[in-house]
Design a protein around this nucleic acid. Structure first.
Lengths: 187, 187
DNA sequence: GGAAGGTAACTAACTAGTTGGTAATATCAA
DNA sequence: TTGATATTACCAACTAGTTAGTTACCTTCC
Protein backbone atom coordinates (compact mmCIF):
# COMPACT_ATOMS: atom_id res chain seq x y z
CA UNK A 1 0.00 0.00 0.00
CA UNK A 2 1.60 3.22 -1.18
CA UNK A 3 1.21 6.14 1.20
CA UNK A 4 -0.46 9.11 -0.40
CA UNK A 5 -2.24 11.49 1.88
CA UNK A 6 -4.33 13.49 -0.66
CA UNK A 7 -5.51 10.27 -2.30
CA UNK A 8 -6.55 8.77 1.04
CA UNK A 9 -8.44 11.92 1.91
CA UNK A 10 -10.17 11.83 -1.45
CA UNK A 11 -11.15 8.16 -1.07
CA UNK A 12 -12.60 8.87 2.37
CA UNK A 13 -14.60 11.82 1.09
CA UNK A 14 -15.96 9.81 -1.84
CA UNK A 15 -16.95 6.96 0.46
CA UNK A 16 -18.53 9.44 2.87
CA UNK A 17 -20.65 10.94 0.11
CA UNK A 18 -21.93 7.50 -0.80
CA UNK A 19 -22.60 6.45 2.79
CA UNK A 20 -24.27 9.70 3.88
CA UNK A 21 -26.28 9.84 0.69
CA UNK A 22 -27.57 6.33 1.32
CA UNK A 23 -28.14 6.50 5.08
CA UNK A 24 -28.05 10.11 6.22
CA UNK A 25 -26.08 11.49 9.15
CA UNK A 26 -27.70 9.36 11.87
CA UNK A 27 -27.81 6.19 9.77
CA UNK A 28 -24.28 6.41 8.38
CA UNK A 29 -21.56 4.28 9.94
CA UNK A 30 -17.98 5.46 10.23
CA UNK A 31 -16.75 1.88 10.03
CA UNK A 32 -18.50 1.36 6.71
CA UNK A 33 -16.98 4.55 5.33
CA UNK A 34 -13.51 3.44 6.41
CA UNK A 35 -14.03 0.01 4.84
CA UNK A 36 -15.38 1.41 1.57
CA UNK A 37 -12.53 3.92 1.41
CA UNK A 38 -9.97 1.18 2.10
CA UNK A 39 -8.67 3.40 4.84
CA UNK A 40 -8.25 3.13 8.56
CA UNK A 41 -10.95 4.58 10.75
CA UNK A 42 -8.53 6.84 12.55
CA UNK A 43 -7.53 8.46 9.23
CA UNK A 44 -11.07 9.78 9.06
CA UNK A 45 -10.55 11.56 12.36
CA UNK A 46 -7.15 12.83 11.27
CA UNK A 47 -8.50 14.32 8.05
CA UNK A 48 -12.01 15.38 9.02
CA UNK A 49 -12.23 15.68 12.80
CA UNK A 50 -15.47 13.90 13.52
CA UNK A 51 -18.62 12.48 11.97
CA UNK A 52 -20.44 15.80 11.92
CA UNK A 53 -17.57 17.56 10.13
CA UNK A 54 -17.24 14.72 7.65
CA UNK A 55 -20.94 15.10 6.91
CA UNK A 56 -20.44 18.81 6.35
CA UNK A 57 -17.49 18.11 4.04
CA UNK A 58 -19.55 15.61 2.03
CA UNK A 59 -22.37 18.14 1.83
CA UNK A 60 -20.01 20.89 0.65
CA UNK A 61 -18.68 18.60 -2.04
CA UNK A 62 -22.05 17.43 -3.36
CA UNK A 63 -23.83 20.77 -3.25
CA UNK A 64 -20.77 22.55 -4.59
CA UNK A 65 -20.52 20.18 -7.53
CA UNK A 66 -24.22 20.64 -8.20
CA UNK A 67 -24.15 24.40 -8.27
CA UNK A 68 -21.00 24.38 -10.41
CA UNK A 69 -22.51 21.97 -12.90
CA UNK A 70 -25.93 23.62 -13.06
CA UNK A 71 -25.50 27.38 -13.06
CA UNK A 72 -28.64 29.30 -12.27
CA UNK A 73 -29.68 31.01 -15.49
CA UNK A 74 -32.25 33.36 -14.05
CA UNK A 75 -33.37 34.56 -17.48
CA UNK A 76 -34.04 31.04 -18.70
CA UNK A 77 -35.63 29.18 -15.84
CA UNK A 78 -37.29 26.40 -17.90
CA UNK A 79 -33.94 25.22 -19.22
CA UNK A 80 -32.44 25.67 -15.77
CA UNK A 81 -35.07 23.22 -14.56
CA UNK A 82 -34.25 20.88 -17.43
CA UNK A 83 -30.53 20.92 -16.69
CA UNK A 84 -31.20 20.48 -12.98
CA UNK A 85 -33.34 17.46 -13.79
CA UNK A 86 -30.65 15.94 -15.99
CA UNK A 87 -28.04 16.46 -13.32
CA UNK A 88 -29.96 14.84 -10.48
CA UNK A 89 -30.92 11.93 -12.73
CA UNK A 90 -27.20 11.39 -13.31
CA UNK A 91 -26.26 12.22 -9.71
CA UNK A 92 -28.98 10.92 -7.40
CA UNK A 93 -26.77 11.62 -4.41
CA UNK A 94 -27.18 15.35 -5.02
CA UNK A 95 -30.92 15.19 -4.45
CA UNK A 96 -30.68 12.77 -1.56
CA UNK A 97 -28.02 14.82 0.20
CA UNK A 98 -30.06 17.98 -0.07
CA UNK A 99 -33.02 16.10 1.41
CA UNK A 100 -30.88 14.81 4.28
CA UNK A 101 -29.66 18.33 4.83
CA UNK A 102 -33.20 19.64 5.02
CA UNK A 103 -34.19 16.98 7.55
CA UNK A 104 -31.06 16.52 9.64
CA UNK A 105 -28.73 19.53 9.39
CA UNK A 106 -30.27 22.53 7.61
CA UNK A 107 -27.14 24.54 8.33
CA UNK A 108 -24.73 22.08 6.69
CA UNK A 109 -23.25 22.73 3.25
CA UNK A 110 -22.09 25.88 1.51
CA UNK A 111 -23.90 29.14 2.17
CA UNK A 112 -24.85 30.73 -1.13
CA UNK A 113 -27.44 33.24 0.02
CA UNK A 114 -25.45 36.07 -1.50
CA UNK A 115 -25.48 34.46 -4.93
CA UNK A 116 -29.22 33.98 -4.73
CA UNK A 117 -29.67 37.58 -3.69
CA UNK A 118 -27.93 38.78 -6.84
CA UNK A 119 -29.92 36.44 -9.03
CA UNK A 120 -33.20 37.55 -7.49
CA UNK A 121 -32.27 41.19 -7.97
CA UNK A 122 -31.54 40.51 -11.61
CA UNK A 123 -34.91 38.82 -11.96
CA UNK A 124 -36.69 41.67 -10.22
CA UNK A 125 -35.10 44.34 -12.41
CA UNK A 126 -36.40 42.88 -15.64
CA UNK A 127 -40.07 42.96 -16.55
CA UNK A 128 -41.25 39.39 -16.19
CA UNK A 129 -44.39 38.30 -17.98
CA UNK A 130 -44.91 35.88 -15.12
CA UNK A 131 -46.33 38.41 -12.67
CA UNK A 132 -45.15 36.19 -9.82
CA UNK A 133 -42.58 37.33 -7.25
CA UNK A 134 -39.04 36.30 -8.30
CA UNK A 135 -38.47 34.21 -5.18
CA UNK A 136 -41.72 32.31 -5.61
CA UNK A 137 -40.99 31.77 -9.26
CA UNK A 138 -37.55 30.37 -8.55
CA UNK A 139 -38.74 28.13 -5.73
CA UNK A 140 -41.58 26.77 -7.83
CA UNK A 141 -39.36 26.03 -10.81
CA UNK A 142 -36.88 24.22 -8.59
CA UNK A 143 -39.82 22.34 -7.10
CA UNK A 144 -40.89 21.24 -10.56
CA UNK A 145 -37.41 20.02 -11.43
CA UNK A 146 -37.30 17.62 -8.49
CA UNK A 147 -40.93 16.54 -8.47
CA UNK A 148 -40.58 13.24 -10.32
CA UNK A 149 -37.53 12.05 -8.42
CA UNK A 150 -39.03 12.85 -5.03
CA UNK A 151 -42.46 11.40 -5.71
CA UNK A 152 -43.51 8.38 -3.72
CA UNK A 153 -42.97 5.10 -5.50
CA UNK A 154 -46.61 4.43 -4.69
CA UNK A 155 -47.78 7.24 -6.91
CA UNK A 156 -45.29 6.52 -9.68
CA UNK A 157 -46.24 2.83 -9.66
CA UNK A 158 -49.83 3.69 -10.57
CA UNK A 159 -48.84 4.11 -14.19
CA UNK A 160 -47.27 0.69 -14.57
CA UNK A 161 -43.84 0.27 -16.11
CA UNK A 162 -40.53 1.54 -14.74
CA UNK A 163 -40.85 5.21 -13.76
CA UNK A 164 -37.08 5.58 -13.96
CA UNK A 165 -36.52 4.11 -17.44
CA UNK A 166 -34.72 6.38 -19.90
CA UNK A 167 -37.85 6.75 -22.03
CA UNK A 168 -40.11 7.63 -19.11
CA UNK A 169 -37.62 10.14 -17.77
CA UNK A 170 -37.32 11.78 -21.20
CA UNK A 171 -41.10 12.09 -21.43
CA UNK A 172 -41.29 13.63 -18.00
CA UNK A 173 -38.42 15.98 -18.69
CA UNK A 174 -40.26 17.39 -21.67
CA UNK A 175 -43.48 17.76 -19.68
CA UNK A 176 -41.64 19.35 -16.77
CA UNK A 177 -39.78 21.90 -18.89
CA UNK A 178 -43.04 22.78 -20.64
CA UNK A 179 -44.72 23.21 -17.26
CA UNK A 180 -41.91 25.51 -16.14
CA UNK A 181 -42.30 27.52 -19.33
CA UNK A 182 -45.99 27.99 -18.64
CA UNK A 183 -45.33 29.12 -15.06
CA UNK A 184 -42.63 31.55 -16.19
CA UNK A 185 -44.39 32.93 -19.25
CA UNK A 186 -47.77 33.37 -17.61
CA UNK A 187 -51.03 32.95 -19.52
CA UNK B 1 -51.39 6.11 37.21
CA UNK B 2 -54.66 4.71 35.91
CA UNK B 3 -54.30 1.70 33.66
CA UNK B 4 -55.84 2.22 30.25
CA UNK B 5 -54.37 0.19 27.45
CA UNK B 6 -55.83 2.09 24.43
CA UNK B 7 -54.77 5.41 25.91
CA UNK B 8 -51.22 4.18 26.50
CA UNK B 9 -51.03 2.88 22.96
CA UNK B 10 -52.28 6.21 21.65
CA UNK B 11 -49.74 8.18 23.69
CA UNK B 12 -46.94 5.99 22.38
CA UNK B 13 -48.06 6.43 18.79
CA UNK B 14 -48.32 10.20 19.16
CA UNK B 15 -44.87 10.38 20.71
CA UNK B 16 -43.52 8.13 17.95
CA UNK B 17 -44.89 10.42 15.26
CA UNK B 18 -43.15 13.37 16.86
CA UNK B 19 -39.86 11.56 17.39
CA UNK B 20 -39.69 9.96 13.94
CA UNK B 21 -40.78 13.18 12.28
CA UNK B 22 -37.98 15.03 14.03
CA UNK B 23 -35.19 12.45 13.73
CA UNK B 24 -36.18 9.79 11.20
CA UNK B 25 -35.96 6.05 11.69
CA UNK B 26 -32.21 5.84 12.31
CA UNK B 27 -32.08 8.98 14.45
CA UNK B 28 -35.12 8.25 16.61
CA UNK B 29 -34.58 6.88 20.10
CA UNK B 30 -36.96 4.40 21.66
CA UNK B 31 -36.12 5.72 25.12
CA UNK B 32 -37.12 9.24 24.13
CA UNK B 33 -40.41 7.97 22.74
CA UNK B 34 -41.12 6.09 25.97
CA UNK B 35 -40.28 9.15 28.04
CA UNK B 36 -42.40 11.52 25.93
CA UNK B 37 -45.29 9.05 26.01
CA UNK B 38 -44.97 8.71 29.81
CA UNK B 39 -44.91 4.98 29.24
CA UNK B 40 -42.49 2.17 29.90
CA UNK B 41 -40.18 1.14 27.11
CA UNK B 42 -41.42 -2.42 27.17
CA UNK B 43 -44.98 -1.24 26.47
CA UNK B 44 -43.71 -0.09 23.10
CA UNK B 45 -42.63 -3.62 22.32
CA UNK B 46 -45.90 -5.05 23.64
CA UNK B 47 -48.01 -2.77 21.46
CA UNK B 48 -45.88 -2.35 18.35
CA UNK B 49 -43.33 -5.18 18.21
CA UNK B 50 -40.15 -3.32 17.36
CA UNK B 51 -38.76 0.01 16.20
CA UNK B 52 -39.33 -0.74 12.52
CA UNK B 53 -42.97 -1.62 13.06
CA UNK B 54 -43.50 1.44 15.22
CA UNK B 55 -42.09 3.53 12.41
CA UNK B 56 -44.50 1.88 9.98
CA UNK B 57 -47.40 2.55 12.35
CA UNK B 58 -46.41 6.20 12.68
CA UNK B 59 -46.15 6.45 8.89
CA UNK B 60 -49.57 4.86 8.42
CA UNK B 61 -51.06 7.34 10.83
CA UNK B 62 -49.49 10.45 9.34
CA UNK B 63 -49.96 9.57 5.68
CA UNK B 64 -53.45 8.23 6.34
CA UNK B 65 -54.47 11.45 8.08
CA UNK B 66 -53.03 13.47 5.22
CA UNK B 67 -54.88 11.63 2.49
CA UNK B 68 -58.11 11.74 4.50
CA UNK B 69 -57.78 15.46 5.09
CA UNK B 70 -56.73 16.37 1.55
CA UNK B 71 -58.75 14.32 -0.94
CA UNK B 72 -57.30 14.27 -4.43
CA UNK B 73 -59.68 16.30 -6.59
CA UNK B 74 -58.33 15.29 -9.96
CA UNK B 75 -60.56 17.74 -11.83
CA UNK B 76 -59.36 20.68 -9.76
CA UNK B 77 -55.66 20.24 -9.29
CA UNK B 78 -54.80 23.88 -8.49
CA UNK B 79 -57.04 23.87 -5.45
CA UNK B 80 -55.79 20.43 -4.54
CA UNK B 81 -52.33 21.95 -4.45
CA UNK B 82 -53.64 24.81 -2.35
CA UNK B 83 -55.28 22.53 0.18
CA UNK B 84 -52.21 20.32 0.30
CA UNK B 85 -50.10 23.40 1.01
CA UNK B 86 -52.42 24.50 3.80
CA UNK B 87 -52.34 21.07 5.36
CA UNK B 88 -48.58 20.68 5.43
CA UNK B 89 -48.18 24.20 6.78
CA UNK B 90 -50.43 23.15 9.65
CA UNK B 91 -48.94 19.67 9.90
CA UNK B 92 -45.23 19.88 9.16
CA UNK B 93 -44.79 16.29 10.33
CA UNK B 94 -46.71 15.11 7.27
CA UNK B 95 -44.12 16.51 4.88
CA UNK B 96 -41.18 15.45 7.00
CA UNK B 97 -42.48 11.92 7.41
CA UNK B 98 -42.98 11.52 3.69
CA UNK B 99 -39.41 12.73 3.17
CA UNK B 100 -38.10 10.26 5.72
CA UNK B 101 -40.07 7.56 3.98
CA UNK B 102 -38.53 8.43 0.64
CA UNK B 103 -35.02 8.34 2.08
CA UNK B 104 -35.17 5.56 4.66
CA UNK B 105 -38.08 3.18 4.01
CA UNK B 106 -39.81 3.75 0.67
CA UNK B 107 -42.06 0.76 1.35
CA UNK B 108 -43.40 2.04 4.69
CA UNK B 109 -46.85 3.55 5.00
CA UNK B 110 -50.17 2.76 3.37
CA UNK B 111 -50.22 1.53 -0.24
CA UNK B 112 -52.63 3.63 -2.26
CA UNK B 113 -51.54 2.76 -5.77
CA UNK B 114 -55.04 1.56 -6.60
CA UNK B 115 -56.58 4.89 -5.67
CA UNK B 116 -54.08 6.73 -7.81
CA UNK B 117 -54.81 4.40 -10.72
CA UNK B 118 -58.49 5.32 -10.62
CA UNK B 119 -57.73 9.02 -10.36
CA UNK B 120 -55.33 8.87 -13.30
CA UNK B 121 -57.89 7.00 -15.38
CA UNK B 122 -60.44 9.67 -14.61
CA UNK B 123 -57.96 12.33 -15.66
CA UNK B 124 -57.10 10.49 -18.86
CA UNK B 125 -60.75 10.05 -19.91
CA UNK B 126 -61.50 13.74 -19.90
CA UNK B 127 -60.07 16.10 -22.50
CA UNK B 128 -57.46 18.12 -20.63
CA UNK B 129 -56.36 21.46 -22.06
CA UNK B 130 -53.01 20.78 -20.44
CA UNK B 131 -51.72 18.41 -23.11
CA UNK B 132 -49.43 16.84 -20.51
CA UNK B 133 -49.73 13.17 -19.47
CA UNK B 134 -51.95 12.80 -16.38
CA UNK B 135 -49.20 11.26 -14.26
CA UNK B 136 -46.75 14.03 -15.09
CA UNK B 137 -49.38 16.64 -14.42
CA UNK B 138 -50.22 15.19 -11.02
CA UNK B 139 -46.58 14.77 -10.01
CA UNK B 140 -45.73 18.32 -11.06
CA UNK B 141 -48.66 19.83 -9.19
CA UNK B 142 -47.74 17.92 -6.05
CA UNK B 143 -44.18 19.13 -6.56
CA UNK B 144 -45.39 22.71 -6.69
CA UNK B 145 -47.40 22.31 -3.48
CA UNK B 146 -44.36 21.28 -1.46
CA UNK B 147 -41.76 23.49 -3.12
CA UNK B 148 -41.66 26.31 -0.57
CA UNK B 149 -41.57 24.07 2.47
CA UNK B 150 -38.82 21.87 1.09
CA UNK B 151 -36.63 24.69 -0.20
CA UNK B 152 -33.28 25.21 1.45
CA UNK B 153 -33.24 27.87 4.12
CA UNK B 154 -30.32 29.31 2.20
CA UNK B 155 -32.45 30.10 -0.80
CA UNK B 156 -35.39 31.34 1.22
CA UNK B 157 -33.12 33.56 3.29
CA UNK B 158 -32.08 35.51 0.18
CA UNK B 159 -35.27 37.49 0.30
CA UNK B 160 -34.84 38.74 3.86
CA UNK B 161 -37.62 38.43 6.41
CA UNK B 162 -39.20 35.27 7.80
CA UNK B 163 -40.07 32.91 4.95
CA UNK B 164 -42.53 31.10 7.20
CA UNK B 165 -44.49 34.12 8.44
CA UNK B 166 -48.24 33.98 7.84
CA UNK B 167 -48.06 36.83 5.32
CA UNK B 168 -45.22 35.31 3.33
CA UNK B 169 -46.92 31.93 3.26
CA UNK B 170 -50.16 33.51 2.04
CA UNK B 171 -48.30 35.28 -0.76
CA UNK B 172 -46.60 32.10 -1.80
CA UNK B 173 -49.81 30.11 -1.64
CA UNK B 174 -51.44 32.46 -4.11
CA UNK B 175 -48.43 32.33 -6.43
CA UNK B 176 -48.26 28.55 -6.18
CA UNK B 177 -51.95 28.00 -6.93
CA UNK B 178 -51.67 30.38 -9.88
CA UNK B 179 -48.63 28.46 -11.13
CA UNK B 180 -50.55 25.19 -10.84
CA UNK B 181 -53.43 26.74 -12.80
CA UNK B 182 -51.06 27.73 -15.59
CA UNK B 183 -49.58 24.25 -15.76
CA UNK B 184 -52.99 22.61 -15.80
CA UNK B 185 -54.71 25.01 -18.18
CA UNK B 186 -51.88 25.21 -20.68
CA UNK B 187 -51.10 28.35 -22.61
C1' DG C 1 16.79 9.37 12.31
C1' DG C 2 12.69 11.68 12.16
C1' DA C 3 8.42 13.18 10.36
C1' DA C 4 4.28 11.78 8.05
C1' DG C 5 1.04 8.18 6.83
C1' DG C 6 -1.10 4.15 8.35
C1' DT C 7 -2.99 0.33 11.51
C1' DA C 8 -5.06 -2.95 15.02
C1' DA C 9 -6.85 -3.08 19.25
C1' DC C 10 -9.22 -0.72 22.74
C1' DT C 11 -12.76 2.06 25.45
C1' DA C 12 -16.62 4.38 27.15
C1' DA C 13 -21.05 5.40 26.08
C1' DC C 14 -25.15 4.30 23.93
C1' DT C 15 -29.16 1.54 22.20
C1' DA C 16 -32.70 -1.91 20.86
C1' DG C 17 -34.78 -5.27 22.97
C1' DT C 18 -35.74 -8.56 27.33
C1' DT C 19 -36.94 -10.22 31.82
C1' DG C 20 -38.76 -11.06 36.27
C1' DG C 21 -41.75 -9.07 39.08
C1' DT C 22 -45.59 -5.72 40.99
C1' DA C 23 -50.05 -3.47 41.03
C1' DA C 24 -54.58 -2.89 39.32
C1' DT C 25 -58.70 -4.90 37.48
C1' DA C 26 -61.79 -8.49 36.09
C1' DT C 27 -64.03 -13.15 37.14
C1' DC C 28 -66.64 -15.92 39.86
C1' DA C 29 -67.88 -19.20 43.54
C1' DA C 30 -69.91 -19.08 48.09
C1' DT D 1 -71.32 -8.72 49.13
C1' DT D 2 -66.86 -11.05 49.79
C1' DG D 3 -62.70 -13.10 49.23
C1' DA D 4 -59.80 -16.05 46.33
C1' DT D 5 -57.90 -16.35 41.75
C1' DA D 6 -56.76 -15.23 37.05
C1' DT D 7 -55.63 -11.71 33.83
C1' DT D 8 -54.14 -7.51 32.11
C1' DA D 9 -51.30 -3.26 32.36
C1' DC D 10 -47.27 -1.62 33.78
C1' DC D 11 -42.42 -0.97 35.36
C1' DA D 12 -37.24 -0.87 36.89
C1' DA D 13 -33.29 -3.04 35.97
C1' DC D 14 -30.63 -5.66 32.96
C1' DT D 15 -28.19 -7.56 28.65
C1' DA D 16 -25.87 -8.17 24.49
C1' DG D 17 -24.37 -5.89 20.78
C1' DT D 18 -23.09 -1.66 18.49
C1' DT D 19 -20.75 2.83 17.65
C1' DA D 20 -18.02 7.13 17.69
C1' DG D 21 -13.83 8.24 18.95
C1' DT D 22 -8.76 7.15 20.93
C1' DT D 23 -4.22 5.27 21.59
C1' DA D 24 0.06 3.07 21.26
C1' DC D 25 2.62 1.23 17.87
C1' DC D 26 4.36 0.17 13.10
C1' DT D 27 5.97 1.45 8.19
C1' DT D 28 7.65 4.22 4.58
C1' DC D 29 10.51 7.53 2.61
C1' DC D 30 13.26 11.64 2.55
Amino acid sequence: MVQDSPATRARILAAAVEEFSAHGLAGARIDRIAEAAVANKSSIYVYFGNKEKLFAAAMDRVIGDLSDAVPLTEHDLPNYAGRMFDYVVDHPEALRMSMWRHLERPSAGPVVTELYERKLEAMASEAHPSGLPPMDLLVLVVGLSGAWLTSSRDLLAAEGGDPYSAERLATHRAAMVEAARRVVDGV
